[in-house]
Write a protein that binds this DNA or RNA. Structure first.
Lengths: 201, 201
DNA sequence: GCCGGATCGTGACAACTGTCATGGCGCACC
DNA sequence: GGTGCGCCATGACAGTTGTCACGATCCGGC
């Protein structure tokens, strides 16, 4: 029997995934959490074979949680599930020590299969996604460029960002300009979309 | 027996919801679609009691699909399910003739209950969401203001928007300025977030 | 018929944004 | 001990964005 911990912030999705997996004879959902920072404590208690982890979660995100699980409970494998379109997540998920990566757009029966293979220690990656990710490449952004772009996410002005990151306004403008150049876009909003779609944030 | 058609663009979520509902003795999932524009044809063929509809879908969105279902198959009720946080969808869903509205953040067992009640013709609305929506109020944006804001979504410049909507650049700036004033924000990006969060787009 | 509101436009101004050149500092690598 | 790179900063410039005042047309309601 393969024991599974579900981590997803949406109740309904979590419950639905649990129902889906309960149809499988060899898989048992032993726990569910709705926040990234609840994953490690629950893993410590439940010792599941596999954690089925969403990327977007309150607390800490699924990628950070994956790394933490690998560090504290090496016997537990991580299978990351996420919404399609954020190809760059795959690379970061792998770097965080996740063994598998499936998209929510995948057919339903692929999930149970992916769980079984991850539980056996095999790598599982959606093939179409893998191709897209390799084509997309690693993030060309430096740490600070990424910070500035993240701070610009909610529509903050240059002055806001400078204040938040303790930089001069000129420096912020320079970083944003560099990001726009690297993404081949025309303004910070397009750059933001491009970077988000590539999973560089 | 209550027959249900699932409409959600994510395969895995759709399959999971189907599994969840199959646990209920009195509910049967008779079909699944992944695009908004497939809903009406499938409703015509399957004649389900209830359509469980996501808002975000390719083709046409869930709200437009809901209206189309009401117009073509009055015996079929619509229950809209969506990701939390877009409170303004509720009002528009109701205007589109949906009978129920639940968020994906709701507990799993609430879904089957909501389906039963909608099938009986009762209105079902998540109470916390209802309060938030009434507080948020109807959209203060005019049709054209909304168009311009939607066109600005992907980081387009004033010139781009003007070209796309066949307006002068000055007019576009005026509309954007009006939207920024109405949303009480400081730039188009904040206005965009505010309007999206309120479901005004 | 008059009024209010939505729509579309112009022109001018201030503020913000993006670009570029240039420089200093620290660190890793060969 | 150079060389490259990430980091931080300044100053100047052009281009874009946001604001404001003003006016035009069209439409529905009283």
């Amino acid at each position: 029997m393969i024991t599974v911990l579900l981590a997803d912030d949406q109740h309904l999705v979590r419950g639905a995934l649990a129902a889906l997996l309960s149809l499988e004879d060899d898989i048992e959902v032993v726990g569910q959490v709705g926040r990234g920072d609840e994953v490690v404590p629950q893993v410590a208690v439940l010792r599941p074979d596999v954690v089925l982890m969403d990327v977007e979660m309150p607390g800490i995100d699924g990628l950070a949680a994956a790394a933490a699980v690998r560090a504290t409970a090496p016997a537990t494998q991580v299978l990351v599930v996420t919404t399609f379109g954020r190809t760059g997540y795959l690379r970061r998920a792998m770097e965080a020590g996740a063994l598998g990566f499936v998209v929510k757009d995948a057919p339903a029966d692929a999930l149970a299969d992916a769980i079984r293979r991850v539980a056996r220690g095999e790598r599982v990656v959606d093939p179409t996604l893998a191709a897209a990710t390799l084509a997309g490449g690693a993030s060309p952004l430096t740490g600070r460029e990424r910070d500035v772009l993240v701070a610009a996410r909610d529509g903050a002005t240059v002055a806001d960002i400078a204040g938040r990151l303790f930089l001069s306004e000129g420096t912020v403008r320079n970083y944003l300009s560099a990001v726009i150049a690297k993404t081949g876009t025309r303004n910070r909003m397009e750059a933001l979309r491009a970077a988000e779609d590539s999973g560089w944030l």
